[in-house]
Design a protein around this nucleic acid. Sequence first.
DNA 1: GGTGGCGTAGTAACCGGTTACTCGACGAGT
DNA 2: ACTCGTCGAGTAACCGGTTACTACGCCACC
Lengths: 349, 349
Amino acid sequence: MSGPARRVTIRDVAAHAGVSVATVSRALAGDYPVHPSTRRKVLRAVRELDYVPNAQARALSVASPGAVAIVIHSVDSPYYALIAQGVEEQAAAEGRLSLICTTGSDPERELAFVQTMREQRAEAVILVGGVVLDDDYRERMSRYAHGLAASGSRLVLCGRPPLGDGVPAFTVDFDNTGGARAITAHLLSAGHRRILYLGIRPGNSTSNTRVAGYRAALADHGVTAAPALEMCCHFDRRSGYVTMKRRLTEGPRDFTAVFAATDLIAAGAVKALREHGLRVPDDVSIVGYDDVPPAEDIGLTTVHLPHTELGRAAVRLALSGKDPLAEPPITLGTHTVVRCSVKPLGSGR
Amino acid sequence: MSGPARRVTIRDVAAHAGVSVATVSRALAGDYPVHPSTRRKVLRAVRELDYVPNAQARALSVASPGAVAIVIHSVDSPYYALIAQGVEEQAAAEGRLSLICTTGSDPERELAFVQTMREQRAEAVILVGGVVLDDDYRERMSRYAHGLAASGSRLVLCGRPPLGDGVPAFTVDFDNTGGARAITAHLLSAGHRRILYLGIRPGNSTSNTRVAGYRAALADHGVTAAPALEMCCHFDRRSGYVTMKRRLTEGPRDFTAVFAATDLIAAGAVKALREHGLRVPDDVSIVGYDDVPPAEDIGLTTVHLPHTELGRAAVRLALSGKDPLAEPPITLGTHTVVRCSVKPLGSGR
DNA sequence: GGTGGCGTAGTAACCGGTTACTCGACGAGT
DNA sequence: ACTCGTCGAGTAACCGGTTACTACGCCACC
């Protein structure tokens, strides 16, 4: 064929049109007076050679909008996918490209990606998802924040706690404690007192805020929290299934309702309950958290989270030009969505 | 604070270390002999100034790997999300950044993004998702393909039919007709003869291949296809729900099984069936297509598609260095996953 | 002692664009 | 006829890196 044809540059266009490169540049930019006949010649050459300007080269001389980067654990989870969707939409609306990186929860990959984003001169970097809250984390994030700020990029933390004063990062999060408290109250109002909590993840910030709401609601109703009712569980279907399965085979069935820390855990748990001949909600009530699309399939009562709005808010904030040091954390409200997975305790079938 | 500090360049580092820019560049690249003491000075300056090289500038002089771009209709759909996951993984494994664009099925946005990718010098552009197969489409894709090829980028079409000889594009797709044929045969073997097909989308390539498998299986078993049993429906939950609802209220209930063109349609349809007091699979059998995670929640018998493998294969192919003109389309096999949404016809409860 | 080779570091051209500055041509004003 | 202003186009510097080429100092060797 025509071989690995060298890319066509502005010089080729200039030669083809019989003008200087400056004229080509100006004819295309359109902000400088170029004689109509010259412009036509240039445009014809552009068309004939199928010239496409090199965005990287342009970015060197002119300050062009950088990309918006989003870092998530995995796109294969409706929670992250919905947030990413919001980020993508808002970024596109503001004329930015969106870069995506999945880390598989590996801090190494997160670090590498943040570095790459500095090299790429990204305009905003959005880190999404719960984390283990230790000093190492805090230190790492502070380094990111200062580094990105020095490179002119904005850092936004979503679903992670703020880093405190003096660290240049925006924070946007859901009101997890409020949501968990409300839906636990919903179960309590239905008469449930022994509520199994599925989804303890030691140190994990998201887990912590949700379990805090659960405990607060119990306290509100004068119910003493039972550590035996709080079970460790990852935030996915399989863990929900496995954990509930084990509980049903090994532990006492001393609960009348289940609060799953995520809808996916709930989906897995429902499957395990059914396999044990237990009906939802007749034998066991269950609620979830997130209100991702699968919740509808199983008729799950859950807490609705404005996922895409979180993504959009993160982008808006990052591109707002506001000072990250002065901006308080944003908390997005949640609300309970009642479907048909909860039944008042003691009411006959 | 320190104000909008101008970005630190290699010149700043050179000045700080008291050497020339060439030396800094070489000390960092490491491929050219630099005196150890000089290198130390340079590295110290880099650390003190927190210098990060500009990837865009480097890309100008040295041929660096370009990004991998994926274009999907929406990330808020497990089908696309899983494919995107595969793309992301493989791109990361091969040291590429992945850019993502959602079009909301708007050809305008698709076009604009392809143009942007040419400007960005992306190494591969992966277009995913069914399309309306008219001459306009064919013409548009050919333009993309030639344009991208001229810019040194590879085009991969996923879930879209090949463009034919002479058009420089790779093609990777699922064996939809085979999968649809197999699962329809599964229903037929269970004794079902009147199978409602939910998911006709006139002109849409994905829809066409799936319905072709459905019809082929009917023909295999000597069952005449009934146009009244083939219903139009978009590929999402809501359409599945609405369409099934309407069928149940308006049309005759002259079917014993349902073949939903996607699992999400199936999820919506199941909800509508339940609301009409019909039990799955006792009163009506149903199968889906895709095997996305929600299928497990509703115990749906469906066709498994290797989504992430599709994404990975697309990236591998694009970066393989093979000639797109010589490469035949790749078809990935599928298999039926039996869960509990199908019951043999006539067997009592 | 002159010469050649090696190890380092600097100079400057280049990547592909943008744009400040310069310059020639042409028409208007006096 | 001469000057001045304006229009349109070219020249060259610059963005931030990389790297071919050049230059310098030092040692070994004849």
